[in-house]
Computed example of a mutant assay.
Amino acid sequence: MSEAKKKVTVLDYGSGNIRSAVRALEYAGAEVTLSAKAANVLECDGLFVPGVGAFAAVMKALREVGALQWIGRRIAGGRPVLGICVGHQVLFEEGVEHGIRTRGMGEWPGVVELLDAPVVPHMGWNTVTPPADSKLFAGIESERFYFVHSYAVQKWEFDVAQPKMKPPAVTWSEHGVPFVAGVENGPLSALQFHPEKSGEAGAQLLRNWLATL
């Protein structure tokens, strides 16, 4: 008897082309629902939060559909969430675009800022450097992934309040400067790149995530 498919909701709050995310998750073996309904967001095995465009616009859109509260409830309850691109960025404290500061969800300290690189946006395939204990990158540590972004968190300053707490696993990449390409923090994970556009390496990463649900 085959194992039941994990139920994943792709949060549909008006962010760009998300059909590719649905297809990639289905290819990886998930049962996928595209929805902005509270029941679907709260009751699924895993929540996939895409994000395309400006930090402030994504925060506004998430707030308008009530998703900030739902994401917070899932994290507090230990229910898995995976943020992608700007869906990764808004999990940090703050975003700065064109001199405008926008408060993020504040799950991790850090400021999303313009990359100090000769060419922006950072567009195309790039390598990453995951930590040894990464679950998402298990078996694909040397693969390339597809990035499209101009902004990123370039400083990681996370203080563990309790010595026995396990610190987040942080994956780095580089475009002009080093930047945070991924974070794994208990039920909450996030990626600056697009696994749904990263071919078989991206598919394997999604399988790795599904295996943790």
Score class of each variant (00 low, 15 high):
171 T>D: 11
148 V>R: 15
148 V>Y: 15
175 H>K: 07
212 T>G: 03
11 L>W: 03
189 S>H: 08
168 P>L: 00
103 R>M: 02
16 G>S: 03
77 G>K: 10
157 E>I: 02
120 V>P: 07
132 A>H: 14
197 K>M: 08
111 V>E: 14
65 V>L: 07
141 E>D: 02
85 C>A: 03
166 K>C: 03
203 A>W: 00
13 Y>W: 03
53 G>D: 05
97 E>N: 03
198 S>M: 04
86 V>G: 01
2 S>A: 11
56 A>R: 15
92 F>N: 02
116 D>N: 14
15 S>Y: 12
175 H>C: 01
94 E>S: 05
19 R>V: 05
116 D>Y: 05
97 E>V: 04
110 G>Y: 11
16 G>M: 11
1 M>V: 14
77 G>P: 12
57 A>Q: 13
120 V>Y: 00
55 F>R: 03
184 E>M: 05
16 G>C: 10
116 D>Q: 14
78 G>T: 08
182 G>P: 08
112 V>C: 15
74 R>T: 06
76 A>T: 00
15 S>P: 01
31 E>G: 06
37 K>S: 09
201 A>P: 07
51 G>A: 00
79 R>N: 09
119 V>D: 01
171 T>N: 14
165 M>Q: 15
48 F>T: 01
127 T>R: 15
97 E>G: 00
105 M>I: 06
